[in-house]
Amino acid sequence: MNILGKLNRAPLSAKIGIGILAINVICVLFAPWIAPYAEGQVVGDPWAPGLVGAPEGDLAPTTLLGTDHLGRDVLSRLIFGARNSILIALLTTTISFSIGITCGLLAATMRGTVDQVLSRIVDVMMGFPTLIFALMVLAILGSSIPVLIGVIALLDATRVFRITRAVAMDLEAQDFVEVARLRGESIGWIMRRELLPNAVSPLAAEFGLRFCFVFLFIATLSFVGLGIQPPTADWGSMVRENAAAISFGILMPLFPASAIALLTVAVNMIVDWAVASTSGVRNDN
């Protein structure tokens, strides 16, 4: 009930964010049951208008949002696409956090050579623009979902490493870690029991932001044709496949593009609120 009370006092933007996120989660969990048609089912002519945005006096449309370039139902593709796009981004972010947090804590606790080596590797990787790095690897290995997840998780882990290391370094300088060292505790114990529990809340907000980044990144790669490959439904690819329609005045590609934009805005709004509510009130004099 504490959480409900907090939600109640949340600003409008956060409430909207939570609403949008909830709809997405429902789509992810129950896609086959909510979607009116199957993922690859052809239901009409290519780019047939739907109820939304149909010209006046047109024949009664059979779908809500119309059809895509192959005549598949856009709404169903969006719902299945939510599942693919979000789950892949979530998995990637989780892997990137596992790697980043482990290495970050290790660098902060071990200091010395381990820290130097890890930090320099990360410096070099971050000196390389992420998109370019990813494109190069995809050029060599070809685009498949495991390669995509692996490459992005590794690149993103560098950011997580930096943040974890900074948070852990601050904690590490605290006397309670010194006490544990003086007691003779192992590196593993210090990482797990002294540092990690205190690093969780600053990293939680970061998870939201990194998820947004990864999600947009995959969408971007899919959009340029190097991400998730057809026939898997995915929002970024949907924009790409139907991009040509916009020149004919058909707004269909804006639906998946909006879905992407809405989800990232929603997560950002929630993170904004979470950060503001944990850092306390600030009323300026």
């Binding site: 924009v239 593009a257 990232t264």
Partner: peptide, 15 residues
């Protein structure tokens, strides 16, 4: 600006 950084470039572009 929050919206600005959340939108993918292709969304802004097509809008």
């Amino acid at each position: 600006s929050l919206a600005g950084i959340s939108f993918p470039e292709f969304f802004t572009a097509y809008m």
